[in-house]
Amino acid sequence: MKEEIIIAGFGGQGVLSMGKILAYAGLMDDLEVTWMPAYGPEQRGGTANVTVILSDKPISSPVLDKYDTAVILNQQSLDKFESKVKPGGTLIYDPYGIHRAPTRTDINVIPVSAMDAVLELGNSKTYNMVLLGALLSARNLLSTDAVIRGLKKTLPERHHHLIPLNEQAIEKGRSLV
């Protein structure tokens, strides 16, 4: 098993933390993982992206040019990464704020209205968790138990009361695919 994932959007949308939870969940499922952020000043409001690799074998490069799966949260990232999805791969995106929809037909394009979902849930901070749920479901990755344990590792203990809310958002995301 090997899944090469790019998550890309605006800084502040929870791109890096979504990747972190995914990486920790991979760790919980005894996989090899790498988490490579495109770090820099662009994290402050500009575009941010993170490459996460989950594999049952040792991982060579943490830096990639082709991805099995892309999770896209804004137009700039769609423009940049649509062509970088491997043929037969998966592109998950939130149509909110997207004015030029993906055009490729050789990949599995999955629109997920995560922004609408969080408005329904009443907590916009769980936006990235809805998309994470969609990713887990679309790619059949990792157990929910591993993701919850990953969340516990990522969140400081004072925020652990928010885990049920995040779990709800992940389930919501799963149901949208």
Binding site: A23, L27, E32, M36, P37, I59
Partner: peptide, 10 residues
Amino acid sequence: DGIVGQMMEK
């Protein structure tokens, strides 16, 4: 370098 400093792995 910045890659191995900033990336996370096991």
